[in-house]
Design a protein around this nucleic acid. Structure first.
Lengths: 338, 338
DNA sequence: GACTGAAATGCAAGCCCTTACATTTTCCAC
DNA sequence: GTGGAAAATGTAAGGGCTTGCATTTCAGTC
């Protein structure tokens, strides 16, 4: 046991520097309100004592934290990583801190994380997608915590979001695929029940099919959990279907990569025997072989924009402004004629 | 503007339930110290008011937060994701919360994040690797924050860690590769200056070379930033070297995947013309083609163990116990004879 | 019914900061 | 020098919670 010198407080700094706590506080938070010489003395003392302000006390006294919470479904597989990184950079450069939490795609966990971040004093929250229990929104409204949604954008939605139109994006891709002559389509989707991005992407394909005069009920639909192995297993299911689909859409790139791996393992040629299409355009999409045709989502831009919108709101009181971003179809090597 | 009903406090709950704040606090934190009927009444009131305790106030009064901070170099590419996920699960199941932050491999950012997490009241910290400014360790000691290191294990180290021996792991792989007849070796390494894992892995190769009677100065060494594209560029540099190496080690799987992609783009056969060896065994390693030979790191086990060690320490006062985990060589398809 | 120890509850002192307001110091213009 | 405004600093009141200690309530016993 080393002798426990107690953790220094503001008071300790004040005493040692021979000033009041108010002055120390100002020297830290509003340096230009303090005379140069005093400021230097205070900062020297802070360094000497290794003082570091207590966040809880500060939050309580100031009633804000300059902290913004972000809750994402998963930290694996980089789907959200790039966007979040840009979000964080934007916040940091404006003096805000990001707190991340992930939910493993469990609504209960999301609720728990939301409460935890709010209790921690998050000044605002960034959440993925629209769908969640209305009680959660009520809670956030009651707590007066601004919420910005992202990764989705619905023109008619009431909650502000910075994102893209999932159904329109997938529809655009489906139109291209149908335009190439594909008629027997399949979709490996993430679980749609609690996930509006997944269900909207599914809608997009059906819309394109209907518009092209195809019966959208013929879509060979498999829903699965998130993961490469899950994508592989789902691909097997789809290949068992008669007549065999010629184009397999995937709700995200991770599932697509799993499907692609399985196709190779089974000796099914891509895109010779079957085309595979992803969604997201994560780095992985360019690395697999053959390189994945997919829908490019502007992750970094989305993160940065979301950060800007929240900072503007928190700092300048600007209303949370919805922003729609555009996706882009990226044709690589896994899509060919049927 | 909706009328702002104020956020309910402990006091509000107490008043409404007709008890003291102490009782409410106990009903929340030590339910069995409160009579059944009182407890029910309190919880009903809490639900009715939508009360949620203020984390800052609680942290300040209780002088602990049940929060453990984890700081990782990057959230991209899933290298740390799986281990961290297991870590979080372990903490959650023991009533602790994990707070994550990432540093983008910048020591300055790491220091900032450490201070931030400490200020937020983290009861302990999980950090990656040994190497950092001693001043940071001094600061943490002064603040009396326990620190557990991970992703590395040095027998002679003074700080406790839960990890594996990076140099021994890489040495074992290098011995195998040399044993297959490779004599001209190359290494694409992450930047070694601030990264002991990278430099130890490099050491491992050199040790194996020396032990096999090869001059370790002949190792074709390229250092680069983290990323798939960076790995690709580094591969180009190595291929420009004369005589051309027959085996390219990579400091991690992400760099290896970049190298692999570049090899394919240039029509260099793997493993026919050159072997490529990764490190980490992230999911990606099995997905690329040809599948990557790599050193398997028990990420989940590492995360879980680290969680256990910290929980034991915080809850039961057990000293932080170092744990060495074993890596495993995984031979897939990118390694062949020279 | 009085007594006793245990169980349940209440009281109130902090925990460490920020900030409105009050006070002192400084600096100029005259 | 003096007066007065501006700049710098100080005072002290919270902010919401936990917890040691004091007090009340309750069972059970004689």
């Amino acid at each position: 046991m080393t002798s426990q010198r107690p953790i220094p407080t503001l008071q300790d700094v004040a005493t040692r520097a021979g000033v009041s706590t108010a002055t120390v506080s100002r020297a830290i938070n509003f340096p230009d309100q303090v005379a140069q010489v005093t400021r230097d003395k205070v900062h020297a003392t802070i360094a000497e004592l290794g003082y570091s302000p207590n966040f809880g006390a500060r939050a309580m006294a100031a009633r804000r934290t300059n902290t913004i919470g972000a809750i994402i479904p998963t930290m694996e597989n980089a789907i959200f990583a790039r966007g979040l990184e840009a979000f964080q950079e934007e916040l940091r450069s404006n003096g805000f801190t990001m707190l991340v939490a992930s939910t493993a795609y469990q609504p209960d966990t999301e609720e728990e994380q939301i409460r935890s971040l709010v209790a921690r004093g998050a000044d605002a929250l960034l959440l993925i997608g629209y769908h969640r229990d209305p009680a959660i929104y009520d809670f956030l409204d009651a707590q007066d915590v601004p919420v910005l949604l992202t990764w989705a954008f619905e023109p008619e939605a009431t909650r502000p979001s910075v994102g893209f139109n999932n159904s329109a994006a997938m529809k655009a891709m489906a139109e291209k695929v149908i335009g190439m002559g594909h008629r027997r389509l399949a979709l490996i989707s993430a679980e749609t029940a609690q996930n509006d991005r997944a269900s909207r992407r599914c809608d997009g394909i059906r819309q394109a099919m209907n518009a092209a005069g195809l019966d959208s009920d013929t879509l060979c639909f498999v829903e699965t959990k998130y993961g490469i192995d899950e994508g592989a297993a789902a691909f097997d299911q789809i290949m068992a279907h008669e007549p065999r689909p010629t184009a397999v859409f995937c709700g995200n790139d991770v599932l697509a990569v799993g499907a692609l791996r399985r196709a190779r393992e089974r000796g099914i040629a891509v895109p010779g025997d079957v085309s595979i299409i992803g969604f997201d355009d994560i780095e992985l999409a360019q690395v697999v072989y053959p390189a994945l045709t997919t829908v490019h989502v502007p992750h970094r831009e989305m993160g940065r924009k979301a950060g800007k919108v929240l900072v503007n709101h928190l700092r300048d009181g600007v209303a949370l402004e919805p922003v729609e971003l555009q996706t882009r179809l990226v044709f690589r090597d896994t899509l060919g004629p049927p």
